[in-house]
């Protein structure tokens, strides 16, 4: 089963990758972008397929709602296609499409402010075999009686308590494994801001989930 965040099978590593998931060469990508600009839908189809899982995952982890993630991910790709002519190539298409999706999602969440709703996607069966997660639920701690689904629910509830920007940093770094540099480019801020937001967000999550952590 693939990891929705990266499109790759999780390797059981404790550390999130400091570099982004494997990306296609920039030149090849730019060629696809240029072809898509000229109306080649097959080229755009290729671009969508490359990033659909990562974009969906980012939006999903921000909204905790499949329907919203579906709409926002689709709209992000549609908006990207419509704005393709304005894409100068100053950043990679990957960063650019991420930025579109992130801005769209943050705007959506601001409008939805007091309408938080979770419709959590099912957990992949492989989650039960992840050594880290097995350790988390089997330790002799107060969380020993809790199942993965309940843990998932608590985790998502805690994430929803974070501000959009803090949730985004945690999602991009700790869930999707993007580097600070990439997150800074996507969020259009400096690396120091990313680091401080990540620290603050983790502190907040730590407090919300203290019953489930050692």
């Amino acid at each position: 089963m693939t990891d929705p965040a990266s499109g790759k099978v999780p390797e059981g590593s404790n550390e999130p990758a400091e570099s982004s998931p494997a990306k296609p060469p920039i030149t090849e990508e730019m060629e696809l972008v240029n072809r898509a600009r000229e109306g080649d839908m097959a080229a755009y189809d290729d671009l969508v397929r490359r990033y659909q899982e990562r974009i969906y995952a980012t939006v999903y982890h921000m909204t905790s709602n499949h329907e919203d993630a579906n709409d926002l991910a689709q709209e992000s790709f549609i908006k990207a296609y419509q704005a393709l002519k304005s894409f100068k190539g100053g950043s990679s298409f990957y960063t650019w499409i991420y930025r579109i999706a992130v801005n769209k999602t943050i705007n959506f969440l601001k409008q939805r402010k007091n309408r938080a709703q979770m419709s959590l996607n099912d957990l992949d069966f492989n989650a039960e075999h992840d050594p880290d997660l097995v350790a988390l639920i089997s330790d002799k701690t107060p969380r020993r009686d809790i199942g993965l689904s309940e843990l998932q629910e608590k985790l998502n509830a805690a994430l929803l308590k974070l501000s959009e920007h803090h949730r985004l940093v945690v999602t991009l770094h700790d869930v999707q494994g993007l580097s600070h540099e990439e997150i800074a480019k996507i969020m259009d801020c400096n690396i120091g801001t990313v680091r401080s937001r990540l620290f603050y967000a983790r502190q907040q999550l730590q407090a919300y989930l203290s019953d489930y952590l050692k």
Binding site: D3, P16, Y56, Y60, D122
Partner: peptide
């Protein structure tokens, strides 16, 4: 916390969701 956050990576959309996404 980061181990716990790994749980998020296992949240999956409905089966076959990405087949027709593009």
């Amino acid at each position: 916390l980061r181990k716990l956050l790994k749980l998020k990576r296992y949240e999956q959309p409905p089966p076959g969701y990405f087949n027709n996404f593009s």
